[in-house]
Amino acid sequence: MTNDESTRFPTIAVYGASGHTGGYILSDLRRRGLTPILVGRNAQRLRAAADAAGLPGAEIRIAAADDRAALVAALTGADVVISSLPGYVDIGEQILAAAIEAGAHYVDISGEQLFTRRAFDEYGPRAEKAGVSVLSGVTDSNLPADLLADLLARRLGPAEFVISHHSRAGGDGSRGSAKTVLASLDWFRAGGWHYADGEFRTGQVDLAPIAHPNATEPTAVAKFAFAAVLTIPRHTDARAVTGAVDEIFRSNITGLTPELVASLPERPGPDSDMRYDTVVDARGADGRTLRGVLSGVDSYRDSGLLAVEAAVRLAAGTAKAGALAPAEAFDAADFLNSLAPHGITWTITNTVGA
């Protein structure tokens, strides 16, 4: 196979393809004319996922998350690995470590600060030594927030950022999302890290109500542990970065229990409105304010689309090796513009008082 052919038709392995977002990942790979390798522990579930996505000829490789040798063998030969899991802090490291050992670039849809921090601190040096790129936290909230912040910082210079995410569904999601929150429940309850004065800090932050797009009035918000809080300071002169979600959502997750999570549906209800807005509000040192907004169709579908887009771009081999923020791997505007055919739009505007 020539280098040109390798760039056009990368080999992508998907771990966790039988989940809700995994189905969207497979469907988008098929749309692109790519036949992935499905990796996991249950051949029957993987074959059913491949068939449902219109990929009956996809290769199935069996490897449990706690079997390192089997994982490395299953991921060897892939240009990129997409990890689609619930609760990365529990089992995500094994897939990340195996991908690096197999010499594959890596993308995941983790929404967990604790895991993304490990990806940078513990696995970034390994990835750099192996000559592969690692991109953790590719979700509908984190990747757009990171790219929007990069574009805002180019206009404002040193700035304070507040990242917020507003879902029309009001927290109605999948069992997998609930598992993710449950795996780091105390961390999510506490609000995670924010960034201030050159370091990551815990503790509460006073946040003013946020006027979300299309909302009739500002919404009370609480600090939230978005992974983009960790990535934005890597490529901007950020003075502060804080994540925020609707106060009612933060209150709802505090009551999660294993029994409640087990009782939840595997997928959101058919009448759930999964549209969302990811918002980055930025204030420059001179007082100027700008707002970046990405508006999407379905949080789960769009996270899958983002993961595939990122994987295909990493397969081209133009990103540097190591663990990267999205804006360190890709041109922000070019990546965001590529999402338009899927109904995902973005804008940057002056905010009131700018």
Rank of each mutant, 00 (worst) to 15 (best):
M1D: 00
R8H: 09
V14A: 05
Y15N: 03
G19K: 04
G22M: 09
G23Q: 10
L26C: 01
D28H: 02
L38A: 02
G40D: 10
A43L: 09
R45T: 06
A50P: 12
L55S: 09
L55W: 15
D66C: 05
R68C: 02
L71M: 15
A73K: 12
G77C: 07
I82P: 05
S84P: 14
P86T: 04
P86S: 05
Q94F: 12
A98Y: 13
A98L: 14
A99T: 03
I100E: 13
E101H: 00
E101W: 06
G103P: 03
G103F: 03
H105C: 13
V107I: 13
E112Y: 11
Q113D: 05
L114F: 07
T116N: 12
A127K: 02
G131I: 15
V134L: 13
T139Y: 02
T139F: 05
S141A: 10
L143T: 08
L151T: 01
G157T: 03
G157N: 03
F161C: 04
H165Q: 08
S167Y: 13
A169W: 14
G173V: 15
V181C: 05
S184A: 07
D186S: 08
R189L: 12
A196I: 15
G198V: 11
F200L: 14
T202M: 09
G203N: 08
Q204W: 09
P209F: 08
T216E: 15
T216Q: 12
T219H: 12
A222M: 09
F226G: 07
I232N: 06
R234G: 12
T242L: 09
G243Y: 11
V245E: 06
S251Q: 13
T254I: 15
G255P: 14
L256H: 00
L260Y: 07
P268Y: 05
D271M: 07
D273M: 08
Y276H: 03
Y276C: 05
Y276D: 14
V279K: 00
D281N: 04
G284V: 13
R288I: 05
G292M: 11
G292R: 01
S299I: 15
E309I: 00
A310R: 12
A316Y: 09
A319Y: 06
G322T: 03
A329E: 09
A329V: 11
D331R: 10
A332G: 04
F335L: 13
N337C: 01
H342K: 08
A354R: 04
